[in-house]
């Protein structure tokens, strides 16, 4: 069983997933950060592979992506680094990034490399559902990879059901239609949207992301979904000196 499926089978709430950009702050920090996060209580990891034109990202993740690219991060290097992943890391790991680097690497080759290094799934925000279904799904399934789709408050009920039927792993609920790094405001309409999704009794578990930056916002997310995803706030907290101490301090906010 894929580690993502196993996680959601064993744990139903308060699941904490952390996003970080490969190659930031240090080019060689990918595995060290994964180890530190698992040790500090993260349930799942999303490792971003950087892209030059990240349209769904706010300034913090844009900057981390640019920094990583400037230092020489690419998919070849990332997969090389990830050969060490499963020597120590046991929690589920997803790769997150934009479709063009995957296309240039080769979809089949990308999926095969993910499976070889022990990556469990992918989040590719600009890969459309219809393209996934027609051209990618079989390859993803062949290599046992979960593909995670996003849902926003504007996504129609019909489309959410379609997304549910194509998902294997979890569904990524955006707190609002926004680029990454905004603050989560659970207004009445957001709460109604989260409740509406919860009431749909989807086949897949749900995680709320975009805008979670504190214990308070994480707890709010956990009220409506199986857990929360933290990206920008974590990336912002990283710095090259005292990497482990900083990660521990950040994670103590959520896993006291």
């Amino acid at each position: 069983m894929n580690r993502i499926t196993k996680l959601f089978k064993e744990k139903k709430n308060n699941i904490l997933s952390i996003y970080y950009t490969a190659g930031y702050p240090g080019l060689g920090d990918t595995i060290a950060i994964a180890n530190a996060l698992e040790k500090a209580g993260a349930d799942m990891l999303e490792i971003g592979f950087p892209y030059s034109d990240p349209v769904a990202d706010g300034p913090v993740i844009q900057a981390s992506s640019k920094h990583a690219l400037d230092q020489g991060m690419d998919l070849n290097l990332l997969f090389e680094q990830l050969k060490e992943l499963r020597k120590t890391v046991t929690i589920p790991v997803l790769l997150m990034g934009y479709v063009n680097p995957v296309l240039q690497y080769g979809v089949e080759r990308f999926c095969e490399a993910c499976a070889q290094v022990g990556v469990d799934g992918c989040i590719v925000p600009d890969l459309p559902m219809v393209e996934y279904e027609e051209f990618y799904k079989d390859t993803f399934l062949k290599y046992g990879l979960s593909n995670v789709f996003l849902v926003t408050p504007q996504t129609s009920v019909e489309r959410i059901h379609k997304i549910d039927s194509l998902s294997n792993g979890f569904i990524y609920l955006l707190s609002s239609s926004a680029t990454t790094g905004q603050n989560l405001q659970v207004s009445d309409t957001t709460a109604a949207y989260f409740s509406r999704i919860a009431a749909m009794e989807l086949n897949n578990p749900t995680m709320i992301g975009f805008g979670i930056s504190s214990k308070e916002t994480f707890d709010k997310a956990c009220k409506y979904a199986n857990g929360g995803i933290i990206g920008t706030a974590f990336v912002k907290s990283l710095s090259s000196d005292k990497l482990n101490e900083n990660i521990d301090a950040f994670m103590k906010m959520f896993r006291a």
Binding site: N100, V102, Q104
Partner: peptide
Amino acid sequence: GKEGVLHGSRSILMQTADGQV
């Protein structure tokens, strides 16, 4: 350029071997 995806469509674009624009 080579075939790839930029700004929402599949087309031809100038990019590195790694798919960076």
